[in-house]
Protein backbone atom coordinates (compact mmCIF):
# COMPACT_ATOMS: atom_id res chain seq x y z
CA UNK A 1 0.00 0.00 0.00
CA UNK A 2 1.18 3.42 -0.95
CA UNK A 3 2.03 5.32 2.23
CA UNK A 4 0.34 8.72 2.50
CA UNK A 5 1.71 11.58 4.54
CA UNK A 6 -0.74 12.84 7.13
CA UNK A 7 -0.06 16.24 8.65
CA UNK A 8 -1.99 19.17 10.06
CA UNK A 9 -2.91 21.96 7.64
CA UNK A 10 -1.75 24.16 5.97
CA UNK A 11 -0.23 21.95 3.32
CA UNK A 12 1.46 24.76 1.40
CA UNK A 13 3.94 27.28 2.71
CA UNK A 14 5.22 30.62 1.49
CA UNK A 15 8.65 30.68 -0.11
CA UNK A 16 10.20 32.79 2.63
CA UNK A 17 12.47 31.04 5.12
CA UNK A 18 14.85 32.26 7.81
CA UNK A 19 17.66 31.65 5.34
CA UNK A 20 16.03 33.70 2.58
CA UNK A 21 15.44 36.56 5.02
CA UNK A 22 19.08 36.53 6.09
CA UNK A 23 20.13 36.40 2.45
CA UNK A 24 18.04 39.52 1.81
CA UNK A 25 19.73 41.28 4.74
CA UNK A 26 23.16 40.29 3.43
CA UNK A 27 22.22 41.65 0.00
CA UNK A 28 20.99 44.87 1.57
CA UNK A 29 24.33 45.24 3.35
CA UNK A 30 26.34 44.95 0.13
CA UNK A 31 26.05 48.58 -1.09
CA UNK A 32 27.69 49.70 2.15
CA UNK A 33 30.52 47.22 1.61
CA UNK A 34 31.12 48.50 -1.91
CA UNK A 35 31.12 52.06 -0.62
CA UNK A 36 33.57 51.16 2.14
CA UNK A 37 36.05 49.77 -0.39
CA UNK A 38 35.98 53.08 -2.25
CA UNK A 39 36.24 55.13 0.93
CA UNK A 40 38.65 53.13 3.07
CA UNK A 41 40.30 50.68 0.68
CA UNK A 42 40.20 46.96 0.02
CA UNK A 43 41.08 46.01 3.61
CA UNK A 44 37.39 46.42 4.45
CA UNK A 45 36.71 43.33 2.33
CA UNK A 46 39.22 41.34 4.35
CA UNK A 47 37.73 42.48 7.67
CA UNK A 48 34.18 41.71 6.57
CA UNK A 49 35.06 38.28 5.19
CA UNK A 50 37.11 37.30 8.22
CA UNK A 51 34.43 38.51 10.61
CA UNK A 52 31.65 36.63 8.83
CA UNK A 53 33.76 33.46 8.66
CA UNK A 54 34.73 33.73 12.33
CA UNK A 55 31.09 34.07 13.40
CA UNK A 56 30.03 31.06 11.34
CA UNK A 57 32.95 29.03 12.68
CA UNK A 58 32.15 29.96 16.31
CA UNK A 59 28.53 28.87 15.85
CA UNK A 60 29.59 25.66 14.12
CA UNK A 61 32.15 24.72 16.76
CA UNK A 62 29.75 25.46 19.62
CA UNK A 63 27.01 23.35 18.10
CA UNK A 64 29.41 20.58 17.14
CA UNK A 65 30.88 20.57 20.64
CA UNK A 66 27.45 20.37 22.21
CA UNK A 67 26.21 17.78 19.72
CA UNK A 68 23.43 20.14 18.68
CA UNK A 69 21.92 20.42 15.21
CA UNK A 70 24.13 22.62 13.05
CA UNK A 71 22.27 25.81 12.16
CA UNK A 72 24.91 27.79 10.27
CA UNK A 73 22.88 27.28 7.09
CA UNK A 74 20.40 29.92 8.22
CA UNK A 75 23.10 32.56 7.54
CA UNK A 76 22.28 34.55 10.67
CA UNK A 77 25.90 34.25 11.84
CA UNK A 78 27.04 35.74 8.54
CA UNK A 79 24.81 38.76 9.15
CA UNK A 80 26.22 39.17 12.66
CA UNK A 81 29.77 38.93 11.31
CA UNK A 82 29.20 41.51 8.61
CA UNK A 83 27.51 43.91 11.03
CA UNK A 84 30.31 43.64 13.57
CA UNK A 85 32.92 44.25 10.86
CA UNK A 86 30.98 47.34 9.80
CA UNK A 87 31.41 48.63 13.36
CA UNK A 88 35.21 48.67 13.44
CA UNK A 89 37.69 51.08 11.84
CA UNK A 90 39.60 49.89 8.78
CA UNK A 91 42.84 49.68 10.76
CA UNK A 92 41.43 47.17 13.27
CA UNK A 93 43.78 44.21 13.82
CA UNK A 94 42.17 41.04 12.53
CA UNK A 95 42.73 39.02 15.71
CA UNK A 96 40.97 41.64 17.77
CA UNK A 97 38.00 41.58 15.45
CA UNK A 98 37.84 37.80 15.87
CA UNK A 99 37.70 38.26 19.65
CA UNK A 100 34.65 40.47 19.09
CA UNK A 101 33.08 37.85 16.81
CA UNK A 102 33.57 35.16 19.45
CA UNK A 103 31.96 37.37 22.08
CA UNK A 104 29.04 38.14 19.78
CA UNK A 105 28.28 34.56 18.81
CA UNK A 106 29.37 32.58 21.84
CA UNK A 107 28.36 34.92 24.64
CA UNK A 108 25.44 36.93 23.30
CA UNK A 109 23.90 34.26 21.07
CA UNK A 110 24.83 30.65 21.81
CA UNK A 111 24.97 30.89 25.61
CA UNK A 112 21.35 31.95 25.57
CA UNK A 113 20.19 29.21 23.23
CA UNK A 114 21.14 30.30 19.72
CA UNK A 115 19.05 32.04 17.09
CA UNK A 116 15.78 33.39 18.40
CA UNK A 117 16.79 33.24 22.05
CA UNK A 118 19.32 36.05 22.43
CA UNK A 119 17.94 39.08 24.23
CA UNK A 120 20.56 41.50 22.96
CA UNK A 121 21.83 42.15 19.48
CA UNK A 122 24.94 39.92 19.18
CA UNK A 123 26.84 42.26 16.87
CA UNK A 124 26.39 45.14 19.29
CA UNK A 125 27.52 43.02 22.23
CA UNK A 126 30.62 42.21 20.17
CA UNK A 127 31.13 45.90 19.56
CA UNK A 128 30.87 46.73 23.26
CA UNK A 129 33.43 44.04 24.09
CA UNK A 130 35.82 45.46 21.49
CA UNK A 131 35.16 49.02 22.61
CA UNK A 132 36.21 48.29 26.18
CA UNK A 133 38.96 45.80 25.36
CA UNK A 134 40.70 47.65 22.55
CA UNK A 135 39.54 51.24 22.96
CA UNK A 136 42.40 52.88 21.09
CA UNK A 137 42.16 50.52 18.11
CA UNK A 138 38.38 50.94 18.05
CA UNK A 139 38.62 54.72 17.88
CA UNK A 140 41.61 54.95 15.56
CA UNK A 141 39.56 56.32 12.73
CA UNK A 142 41.61 56.22 9.59
CA UNK A 143 40.60 58.97 7.26
CA UNK A 144 40.04 58.61 3.60
CA UNK A 145 42.83 60.00 1.45
CA UNK A 146 40.47 61.51 -1.04
CA UNK A 147 38.69 64.02 1.14
CA UNK A 148 39.83 67.56 1.20
CA UNK A 149 38.13 69.64 3.88
CA UNK A 150 37.42 69.89 7.59
CA UNK A 151 35.49 66.67 7.60
CA UNK A 152 38.54 64.63 6.82
CA UNK A 153 40.26 65.61 10.00
CA UNK A 154 37.74 64.11 12.42
CA UNK A 155 34.56 62.06 12.48
CA UNK A 156 31.65 64.37 11.74
CA UNK A 157 30.02 63.71 15.09
CA UNK A 158 32.85 65.38 17.01
CA UNK A 159 32.73 68.49 14.88
CA UNK A 160 29.01 68.80 14.25
CA UNK A 161 28.92 72.29 15.79
CA UNK A 162 31.45 73.51 13.25
CA UNK A 163 29.46 72.24 10.27
CA UNK A 164 26.52 73.67 8.39
CA UNK A 165 24.02 72.18 5.98
CA UNK A 166 26.51 72.42 3.12
CA UNK A 167 28.24 69.37 4.63
CA UNK A 168 25.18 67.22 3.91
CA UNK A 169 26.29 65.93 0.49
CA UNK A 170 29.59 64.79 1.88
CA UNK A 171 27.83 63.02 4.73
CA UNK A 172 25.60 61.28 2.24
CA UNK A 173 28.60 60.07 0.24
CA UNK A 174 30.32 59.13 3.49
CA UNK A 175 33.82 60.20 2.50
CA UNK A 176 34.99 60.91 6.03
CA UNK A 177 36.35 59.20 9.12
CA UNK A 178 34.44 56.54 10.95
CA UNK A 179 33.96 52.79 11.17
CA UNK A 180 33.88 51.04 7.83
CA UNK A 181 30.17 50.39 7.37
CA UNK A 182 28.53 53.44 8.84
CA UNK A 183 29.72 56.36 6.76
CA UNK A 184 28.00 56.09 3.38
CA UNK A 185 24.40 57.13 3.94
CA UNK A 186 23.36 56.56 0.33
CA UNK A 187 24.49 52.92 0.50
CA UNK A 188 22.76 52.34 3.84
CA UNK A 189 19.54 53.97 2.69
CA UNK A 190 19.62 51.88 -0.49
CA UNK A 191 19.84 48.75 1.65
CA UNK A 192 17.04 50.01 3.87
CA UNK A 193 14.73 50.69 0.96
CA UNK A 194 15.45 47.21 -0.39
CA UNK A 195 14.57 45.58 2.95
CA UNK A 196 11.35 47.57 3.26
CA UNK A 197 10.39 46.85 -0.35
CA UNK A 198 11.00 43.14 0.20
CA UNK A 199 8.98 43.40 3.41
CA UNK A 200 11.88 41.96 5.39
CA UNK A 201 11.67 44.87 7.81
CA UNK A 202 8.88 47.28 8.61
CA UNK A 203 9.80 50.96 8.25
CA UNK A 204 8.43 51.62 11.75
CA UNK A 205 11.70 51.22 13.66
CA UNK A 206 14.06 53.09 11.28
CA UNK A 207 11.63 55.99 10.88
CA UNK A 208 10.77 56.34 14.56
CA UNK A 209 14.42 55.92 15.55
CA UNK A 210 15.72 58.54 13.13
CA UNK A 211 12.77 60.83 13.79
CA UNK A 212 13.25 60.62 17.55
CA UNK A 213 17.00 61.21 17.24
CA UNK A 214 16.30 64.33 15.20
CA UNK A 215 13.61 65.55 17.57
CA UNK A 216 15.45 64.98 20.83
CA UNK A 217 18.78 66.28 19.52
CA UNK A 218 16.93 69.47 18.61
CA UNK A 219 15.04 69.61 21.94
CA UNK A 220 18.25 69.10 23.93
CA UNK A 221 19.94 71.87 21.98
CA UNK A 222 22.38 69.58 20.20
CA UNK A 223 24.23 70.98 17.20
CA UNK A 224 22.81 70.47 13.72
CA UNK A 225 20.05 67.92 14.46
CA UNK A 226 19.48 67.20 10.77
CA UNK A 227 23.14 66.49 10.13
CA UNK A 228 23.18 64.43 13.31
CA UNK A 229 21.01 61.68 11.85
CA UNK A 230 23.32 61.44 8.86
CA UNK A 231 26.46 61.10 10.92
CA UNK A 232 27.82 58.48 13.27
CA UNK A 233 26.28 55.04 13.47
CA UNK A 234 22.64 55.96 13.81
CA UNK A 235 21.71 55.16 10.20
CA UNK A 236 23.44 51.76 10.27
CA UNK A 237 21.89 51.10 13.68
CA UNK A 238 18.38 52.23 12.78
CA UNK A 239 18.17 50.23 9.56
CA UNK A 240 20.19 47.10 10.32
CA UNK A 241 20.64 46.66 14.06
CA UNK A 242 17.54 48.00 15.78
CA UNK A 243 15.38 46.05 13.31
CA UNK A 244 16.81 42.67 14.37
CA UNK A 245 13.70 40.50 14.77
CA UNK A 246 14.70 38.70 17.92
CA UNK A 247 15.52 41.82 19.88
CA UNK A 248 12.76 44.16 18.72
CA UNK A 249 9.01 44.22 19.49
CA UNK A 250 6.38 42.35 17.46
CA UNK A 251 3.75 44.94 16.67
CA UNK A 252 3.96 48.23 14.82
CA UNK A 253 2.97 50.08 17.97
CA UNK A 254 5.70 48.30 19.89
CA UNK A 255 8.22 49.04 17.16
CA UNK A 256 7.37 52.76 17.29
CA UNK A 257 7.89 52.83 21.06
CA UNK A 258 11.15 50.93 20.64
CA UNK A 259 12.43 53.31 17.95
CA UNK A 260 11.40 56.29 20.00
CA UNK A 261 13.32 54.99 23.01
CA UNK A 262 16.40 54.26 20.89
CA UNK A 263 16.31 57.79 19.46
CA UNK A 264 15.86 59.33 22.90
CA UNK A 265 18.80 57.47 24.45
CA UNK A 266 20.99 58.14 21.42
CA UNK A 267 20.28 61.87 21.67
CA UNK A 268 20.87 61.92 25.44
CA UNK A 269 24.24 60.22 25.12
CA UNK A 270 25.29 62.27 22.13
CA UNK A 271 24.31 65.63 23.59
CA UNK A 272 25.04 65.16 27.29
CA UNK A 273 27.35 62.15 27.51
CA UNK A 274 31.11 61.72 27.36
CA UNK A 275 30.87 59.43 24.37
CA UNK A 276 30.13 61.08 21.12
CA UNK A 277 28.32 57.94 19.96
CA UNK A 278 25.28 56.50 21.70
CA UNK A 279 23.73 54.16 19.17
CA UNK A 280 25.18 50.95 20.57
CA UNK A 281 24.03 51.65 24.10
CA UNK A 282 20.68 52.97 22.96
CA UNK A 283 19.81 49.82 21.05
CA UNK A 284 21.16 47.45 23.69
CA UNK A 285 19.26 49.21 26.47
CA UNK A 286 16.06 49.13 24.46
CA UNK A 287 16.69 45.44 23.66
CA UNK A 288 16.37 44.79 27.38
CA UNK A 289 12.90 46.29 27.64
CA UNK A 290 11.48 44.55 24.56
CA UNK A 291 9.59 41.91 26.60
CA UNK A 292 7.87 44.71 28.51
CA UNK A 293 7.03 46.58 25.32
CA UNK A 294 5.59 43.36 23.90
CA UNK A 295 3.42 42.94 27.01
CA UNK A 296 2.18 46.50 26.73
CA UNK A 297 1.37 46.28 23.04
CA UNK A 298 -0.51 42.99 22.83
CA UNK A 299 -2.97 42.93 19.95
CA UNK A 300 -6.70 43.09 20.56
CA UNK A 301 -8.23 40.01 18.94
CA UNK A 302 -11.18 40.63 16.61
CA UNK A 303 -14.37 40.37 18.65
CA UNK A 304 -12.39 39.59 21.80
CA UNK A 305 -14.34 40.27 24.98
CA UNK A 306 -12.35 41.43 27.99
CA UNK A 307 -13.41 39.98 31.31
CA UNK A 308 -14.36 42.38 34.01
Amino acid sequence: MNELTVSVSPHIRSARTTRSIMLDVILALMPALVASVFIFGARTLLLTAVSAAACVLCEYLWEKGHKMPITIGDLSAVVTGILLAYNVPVSMPVWQLIVGDAAAILVAKMLFGGIGCNFMNPALVGRIVLMFSFTSEMTAYVFPKTSIDALSSATPLTVLDKLDMSALPQLLYGVHGGVIGETCMIALLLGGVYLVARKVISPAIPLSYLGATLLFTWLFGGAQPILAIFSGGVMLGAIFMATDYVTSPFTTKGKLIFGLGCGFITAVIRVFGNYNEGVTFAILLMNLVVPYINDLTMTKPLGGVTEK
Binding site: T17, T18, I21, T71, D74, S76, G114, I115, G116, C117, Y245, V246, P249, F250, T251, T252, M298, T299, K300, P301, L302, G303
Partner: peptide, 19 residues
Protein backbone atom coordinates in the same frame (compact mmCIF):
# COMPACT_ATOMS: atom_id res chain seq x y z
CA UNK B 1 10.97 23.30 11.42
CA UNK B 2 13.66 25.67 12.68
CA UNK B 3 13.89 27.98 15.69
CA UNK B 4 11.41 30.85 15.94
CA UNK B 5 13.19 34.09 15.05
CA UNK B 6 10.44 36.18 16.59
CA UNK B 7 9.87 38.11 13.38
CA UNK B 8 6.20 38.64 14.29
CA UNK B 9 4.97 37.96 10.75
CA UNK B 10 2.40 35.53 12.16
CA UNK B 11 0.94 38.35 14.26
CA UNK B 12 0.74 40.78 11.38
CA UNK B 13 -0.83 38.12 9.16
CA UNK B 14 -3.50 36.80 11.54
CA UNK B 15 -6.97 37.94 10.36
CA UNK B 16 -8.25 37.56 13.93
CA UNK B 17 -5.38 39.69 15.29
CA UNK B 18 -4.10 36.91 17.49
CA UNK B 19 -0.46 36.42 18.49
Amino acid sequence: TTACIRCGTCIRTCPMKLM
